[in-house]
Structures are given as C-alpha cells and as structure tokens.
Computed example of a mutant assay.
Amino acid sequence: MSDVLTQQQIERFTEDGYLHLEGAFPRELAEAGRALLWERTGLDPSDRTTRTKPVVRLGGYADEPFRLAANTPVLHGAFDQLVGRGRWLPRTGLGTFPVRFPHPDDPGDAGWHVEGSYLPDGAHWYWTNLRSRGRALLMLFLFSDVGEDEAPTRIKAGSHLDVPRFLLPVGEDGMNGLSLAGVLDRAGRLDAPDRPTVLATGRAGDVYLCHPFLVHAAQPHRGGEPRFMAQPGLDPVGLLELDRPDGDHSPVETAVRRGLGLDR
C-alpha cells in the first residue's frame, strides 16, 4: 500500500501532536453506528425531554459499523506511518462513547489531562509511563458532525512535547493520571498559555489521530444536536523504543525524543 500521509503531515503530527484525517471512514458507517448508539442510550431521538443528562457513557462495541470504521485502508496506512509497520494491533471495534447532549449542568469531566493507558494491580486510576505502555495512539472517531458548539474535544497543540520530561523520573512504573495532571499543573504545563487550544471539529467520518501524551479536555455542549464520538486507543505490539540502534524511530517515538531533548 502506498503512503497515505505526506511528510508535511507527519512532521505536523510530530510537532503538534495530532492529525485531522477527513473522511477516514465512510459517512454511511457513521450514520449506521449512530443509529445503534441511539438505541443503546435508551433515549428517544425525537423527544428532547428524554435528554436529562449532559453526558451518557456507552461501553465499547464491535458491531459491524464500528469494526469497519476502525479498519479502513486509510487508517491502517496512517497507523503504519505514525506508529510503525508491525508495531500496532488492529482493533476489533471501538471503545467508550461519551455521548454529549446540550445541557445546563456541568458534565463533570471537562478538565485538562493526559489519557492513562494501563491499570496496575490495586489502582483506581489509569496510569501512563514514558514508553506509553498500552497505547500507541489516542484516537477520536467522529460519528456525528461536530461544530464549535457541539462539545468538540479541546486539544493543547504541542503539549505532548512537554510531558516526557515529567515522566522520565518515574521510569517504567509511570504515574497515575491524576498525579500527572497535578505535576503538569504545578509546572504550568497543563493549561499552558503558550500552547494553542485547538477544537476537534469536523464531519461524521473524520478521525483525529493523537499522540498518546497529548493534553486534551472535554467541554460542555452548547449546540443543538448530540455529539457522538468514540475515543479508543490504538494498541501497541510493545513499548516505545526511544533508543533504536538503527535509528528507525516512529514519529510517535521521535516526538518523545524531542520532548527529552534527544532530537531536534
């Protein structure tokens, strides 16, 4: 398969920490998936009075629309270029869907954070480490059109370059998401004013491929129609390798190296 990403797109991913792939999966799959999700909310799409909460979380699903959406040739090609051929595992479906509705109440989950990727024994919060155990990419799959008022995920562009130096001292053990957010906040790197905030807007069928260390946040829904989005991780075959003898570092690894001052 020929490359689907240009070198400019790859460099932008390395520097910004995210890549917006328009039309990464067919809009028809988004519509079919959205119909299934409406059923599983237990709500009536035609009755707005049933929308009594700002967010409804649905579990991961492997129905055909979700399985096919996660495995298009465009996405597989992008995974190869960003993570490395043979270094990621195909998804059988998509993860949690936080379905967001227009609502006056605070959703209670709109703080800046880095996504955790593994759960040590006895832990209650997901953890993250420097070699990104358990996550090759964070992905945002849009199953509805998302404008600026439809609760688009907020992204701190370039923030993934700040995170590695705070994970370096804790090594393979890593730290939990709450602790990492606290460390970043005290250092002024959680909602860093020099890192621009980008809104993950787009059309149903678009996908945002994000570096696993990207600082991001939800926000309240101020628009009209509900927002349907999946936010799965891409599973890695192994841990990030930050000192490959052959120098064949993936863009994900190169970004971590840049954050540590090992690469320009």
Results as ranks from 00 to 15, higher is better:
E241C: 03
D235A: 08
P232F: 10
R189M: 14
G122L: 06
C210R: 06
A192C: 15
L239T: 06
Q231K: 05
A181L: 08
N129K: 09
G134P: 05
S117R: 03
N129Y: 11
G238A: 13
D162S: 14
R186Q: 14
D206I: 09
S179E: 14
A136K: 07
L184H: 11
G171W: 05
H160G: 01
L138K: 04
E241M: 04
R222T: 14
A151V: 13
D191Q: 12
W112G: 04
E172S: 04
A136F: 07
D162C: 09
D248Y: 03
G174H: 13
K156A: 15
P164R: 12
D243L: 04
E150P: 00
R227P: 10
T197E: 15
A187N: 07
L234P: 02
G171N: 07
D235C: 00
P220F: 11
L167T: 12
G116C: 08
H216P: 09
P120H: 08
P251S: 07
A181R: 13
P232W: 08
W125K: 12
H216T: 11
H124R: 12
P164F: 03
L138Q: 15
P232K: 11
L161Q: 04
L240F: 02
Q231S: 13
L239K: 08
L142Q: 10
P164D: 02
T153E: 06
L240I: 07
S179K: 13
S117D: 01
P226L: 12
P152K: 05
D235I: 00
E172A: 15
P220D: 05
R186Y: 12
D191G: 07
P169D: 06
A204M: 09
D206W: 10
L239I: 02
R227A: 04
G116L: 07
V183L: 15
E172D: 15
E150R: 13
E253K: 08
L199S: 02
H160W: 07
P220T: 01
S250V: 00
G158D: 04
G223L: 09
D185H: 15
F228W: 12
L178C: 10
R189S: 03
A123M: 03
L178Q: 15
F213N: 14
F228K: 05
L119S: 03
T197P: 01
R165D: 00
G202V: 02
L168E: 15
L190T: 02
D248P: 00
G202K: 06
A200E: 00
A157S: 15
G224C: 00
F213C: 05
P120R: 11
G202S: 06
F166T: 00
G182T: 00
G174T: 09
W127F: 13
G171E: 05
D243G: 00
F143R: 02
A136E: 06
M229C: 14
E241G: 12
G233S: 13
L184K: 13
V215G: 01
D191C: 11
M175N: 02
H124N: 01
P226K: 07
F213V: 08
V215C: 13
T201E: 14
L178T: 09
G233T: 13
Y126S: 08
I155G: 04
Y126Q: 11
D185N: 14
G147M: 04
E148N: 00
P226T: 06
L242A: 02
